[in-house]
């Protein structure tokens, strides 16, 4: 027996499975709490809405009090920022907008791109407060969705439900200690009717990022703050880790930095598909790739 919640939020399609027997009232209660929680998250961190805290910080310098969940978000971002020497940075926001990845999805480059400032130049965060030295548009696209999955999972666990899968558009977290693992297909980067491998997901999180999705002009959703171009040598990346925020952040990190370097600092398994369809995966990756020798 299980219940399923399906809805659209933060620009993606959610499918939440609750494994176990719950009454319609219980499921409804959890569902509404989840929607409420996502709404708060979105209102704080979305750069796609004008009334968010992040949008306000882009307009006015000064001090802002952020919710408790900012602690983990900033901790993961800061670690990624340091490990990647600033290549994964929330300060990429204005670059993405200028390149056309804005609230209106105009997808037309507006002006020449300029390198973002450094973390310390722009803000300092000491929970619960962030001090913006200058107005700047922060973008949490690299780990925000994954984190939202974790945050929703906390809501679910808050109701004593510990067997579930939260799937936000292919980024997912599975918890089911005694239950069966999920077999998740890894979608072919250029053909949605095909998969190029599978992951056996059990009590872990899986996130994917494909460079040739969300493509416009010469850009895709990952832009290097150094070169101000989108990496072209990687087609797709999948990461399995304990938490969804880390898995999500690492999918972006792997576009810039070798897995070896990242593995000094994070525990994870990965698959990287290069632009010629050659591939690289970690020894412990819990899945298989469909391979051929050419």
């Amino acid at each position: 027996m299980s219940s399923q919640l399906i809805f659209e939020a933060i620009g993606t399609h959610w499918v939440i499975d609750l494994y176990g027997e719950y009454t319609a009232e219980q499921v409804d209660l959890v569902y509404h709490k989840i929607l409420e929680r996502i709404a708060i998250f979105d209102k704080t961190y979305s750069r796609f809405r004008d009334d968010s805290v992040v949008s306000e910080m882009a307009r006015t310098a000064g001090d802002y009090v952020l919710p408790d969940d900012a602690k983990e978000l900033f901790a993961v971002y800061k670690k990624m920022y340091d490990v990647t020497h600033g290549l994964v940075t929330p300060l990429i926001g204005q670059v993405l907008v200028d390149a056309g990845y804005d609230a209106k999805y105009s997808l037309i480059q507006k002006k020449p791109l300029t390198k973002p400032l450094g973390w310390d130049e722009v803000f300092s965060y000491t929970a619960p407060q962030i001090h913006m030295r200058v107005p700047a548009l922060l973008d949490f696209g690299a780990a925000g969705k994954g984190y939202c999955v974790d945050v929703v999972s906390q809501v679910i666990e808050g109701y004593g439900i510990h067997a579930y899968c939260v799937d936000a558009g292919g980024d997912m977290r599975h918890r089911h200690v005694a239950g069966p693992a999920l077999t998740v297909g890894l979608e072919h980067p250029e053909d949605t009717t095909q998969v190029i491998g599978t992951v056996t997901l059990s009590n872990a999180s899986l996130c994917g990022s494909a460079g040739n999705r969300r493509v416009w002009q010469n850009f895709h959703h990952v832009i290097s703050p150094e070169t101000l171009t989108s990496p072209q040598d990687i087609l797709a990346v999948w990461v399995v880790a304990d938490s969804t925020i880390v898995a999500d952040a690492l999918t972006t990190g792997l576009f810039f930095v070798s897995p070896d370097i990242l593995r000094h600092h994070f525990t994870f398994e990965y698959v990287i598909i290069k632009s010629d369809y050659s591939c690289e995966k970690s020894d412990g990756f819990p899945g298989e790739l469909f391979l051929e020798k050419r």
């Binding site: 999920l182 979608e187 009717t193 994917g208 999705r213 050659s278 591939c279 020798k293 050419r294």
Partner: peptide, 27 residues
């Protein structure tokens, strides 16, 4: 050097797929 190749989703017994749905609709 090994290369990945696709297999039809319909031929596999999958619970979920990760990848495509990353694309937001609006995009």
């Amino acid at each position: 050097k090994a290369y990945v190749v696709g297999q039809d989703i319909s031929t596999l017994n999958l619970t979920k797929v990760s990848g495509s749905s990353l694309t937001p609709r609006g995009f």
